[in-house]
Design a binder for these strands. Structure first.
Lengths: 340, 340
DNA sequence: TAATGTTGTGGTAGCGCTACCATTTATTAG
DNA sequence: CTAATAAATGGTAGCGCTACCACAACATTA
């Protein structure tokens, strides 16, 4: 009747270690998770067996039993952009020492893919989630609510956060930079933005730019949107098109540093001196902007800080601490250099 | 006697879905994993319940039961370097559609940290592992063997692979580039390398450089090693020191593109025309090198391809396919541009 | 001396799923 | 129409761990 099932796996189990050390499985488990609760002598015995056997406990089984995975889901549009890799680094650096691992997903700026990834990560029982941006499909809220997972949205500051958020005001930052350019005497400003449906960071910046430029007594501000990833290649192309169509432009504000670098190089190729003929500004504060010649004026964002704060918020939540500020504004800083 | 334990979790379980759909749990499980084995009618019933309840199966529990996690551990020295983010992207793009997720770890070039991460990932029962480089502490082999996990080493081609490998010959690539520089008429070559104990990629390149340069009838070749991460900042500094100490240098081969960009900028700051006064070459094939002015001659490595091939190897292994070439050489290509 | 606390330890149900069979039902062949 | 095969379905024992209790051993206090 009762079929005699064999063990399907011959891996070492905690029970084996326990037997070899002459203790119960509970004690072995404790000696891993709360060593201070186990007597020194017992601990030594267990440690010896562990070293000897090379036993590594199965965190998967542990997660199932304890109902917490110690896994953090981290979604970024792309890892190619240093902007996001810094956030990844920030989150990872903070979480690892606490025994958490990071599940990385890149959405490629697709809200649809984002939902798929979130579903997958919820399926993996991630304890927390860090998202990029504040614009998500409605499904996201449903899934998050259902799963009841703490979530941090980063980079932007959402009006209606899913849960918590760490970022800065893209609009305000763009306003500051645009104001700076105009104060410096720019009369014919242009902005190069990113034309991706889910990249509302770019739109907020363009909006901020227009809010100032349209109000100031300058020529009709020019907006140029580029599709696809914001590479330096794209920046060069955009600058080229822009100059062909609006040769009188005297300042270009790029919504990404990489594009600004490309734009600068295109100007140099054309023999346009920067900033005397044309001013250039970037966004993001990538180290690269400090190294071009002339160095590029940009908006610096404390990116690693964003990752760290996001991780902190999650940890507080895990520890059931009271969170005073679920929305953290890390601010920005205009870095004035040679290009504008 | 028998204590009446409550359910500790009120999450929806497969059993609940089964009951609601009027079938057994096995059938529900099958309708997820092998839908073709379930009749259309039953599947529709189950799908309806799933949609209605928002049920997301627990992959953690599934992994425990099936003894496979569908998790791939991916270790890189740093995600900041585009070199590695391309590999990450390559692996991720290939694995995700197959239902695998990536556990990301960055070692910061520390072999010690690498071991810790590997141990952690083995604890998570990763089904496969992708490492960067071919130099690992002896513990790594032990752990890997013990856990019996397929492993791919990337970037370098190890002499004694742990298991499988995808990469190219750093030495050979450096030889080709150095030969090219000398053929172009360089008489006083220098190389800027990376002085990190675990970065044997750099050493192999320096070695290749010396093999050619020492043999050719040129001046004593100069080797300059920089510590820390290979940023453009470091490149500028290295170029500066190098020129101060060896002003007669007529060509510099940087072992990383980022450093080459920094080096180029430093030359421009000093008014040294490139390549007429001094030739510059990079390594890696980062897109940036195409955009500087002059564009930088470099060694192109098919990085995303490396990630993809690594993922393919793992998948083949998972499917118990016979692997003809466990060591894949993806080659390299000298990209001749303006700087040399 | 008993009453109370402190510390260390162990037995075992349950975490939510899938592998392994057994069983039932539909289909085809003879 | 029966036998043989194929297609669908279900019961349940693990997967390896931790939470939850119970209990023993010892120290502390009244």
């Amino acid at each position: 009747m009762k079929p005699l099932h064999q063990r399907r796996s011959k891996r070492l189990r905690i029970e084996d270690i326990a037997r070899m050390a002459g203790v119960g499985p509970t004690t072995v488990s404790r000696s891993f998770r709360q060593p201070e609760k186990v007597s020194k002598k017992t601990r030594r015995k267990i440690d010896a067996v562990v070293r000897e056997t090379g036993y590594i406990p199965d965190l998967m089984a542990g997660s199932l039993a304890s109902l917490q995975s110690r896994l953090i889901a981290l979604l970024v549009p792309t890892i190619a952009n240093p902007v996001h890799s810094d956030i990844i680094q920030g989150v990872t650096d903070y979480m690892r020492p606490a025994g958490y691992e990071v599940l990385l997903g890149s959405t490629g700026y697709s809200p649809k893919v984002e939902v798929d990834l979130i579903r997958a990560f919820v399926g993996r029982r991630a304890d927390g989630m860090v998202l990029t941006g504040a614009n998500h499909l409605p499904e996201v809220k449903q899934i998050i609510d259902m799963a009841n997972i703490p979530v941090v949205e980063t980079w932007e500051l959402p009006e209606n956060p899913l849960d918590m958020a760490v970022g800065f005001s893209n609009r305000q930052a763009a306003i500051s930079m645009t104001q700076y350019l105009i104060d410096r005497g720019c009369k014919r400003p242009a902005i190069v933005g990113h034309d991706a449906p889910s990249d509302s960071r770019s739109s907020a910046r363009v909006e901020g730019f227009l809010a100032v430029a349209a109000g100031a007594s300058v020529a009709e501000p020019v907006v140029w949107l580029v599709p696809g990833p914001t590479t330096s290649q794209r920046g060069s192309e955009a600058m080229s098109c822009l100059l062909n169509k609006h040769p009188e432009t005297d300042s270009v504000f790029f919504v990404s540093d990489l594009m600004a670098v490309g734009g600068l190089l295109e100007c140099q190729r054309r023999g346009l001196t920067v900033p005397s003929k044309i001013a250039i500004a970037g966004f993001g504060g990538s180290e690269l902007t400090a190294l071009t010649h002339p160095a590029i004026t940009t908006v610096h964002i404390p990116r690693k800080e964003i990752g760290k704060r996001a991780a902190e918020l999650l940890m507080s939540r895990f520890n059931n601490e009271c969170i005073r500020e679920p929305i953290v504004d890390v601010g920005y800083m205009i870095i004035k250099r040679e290009s504008a």
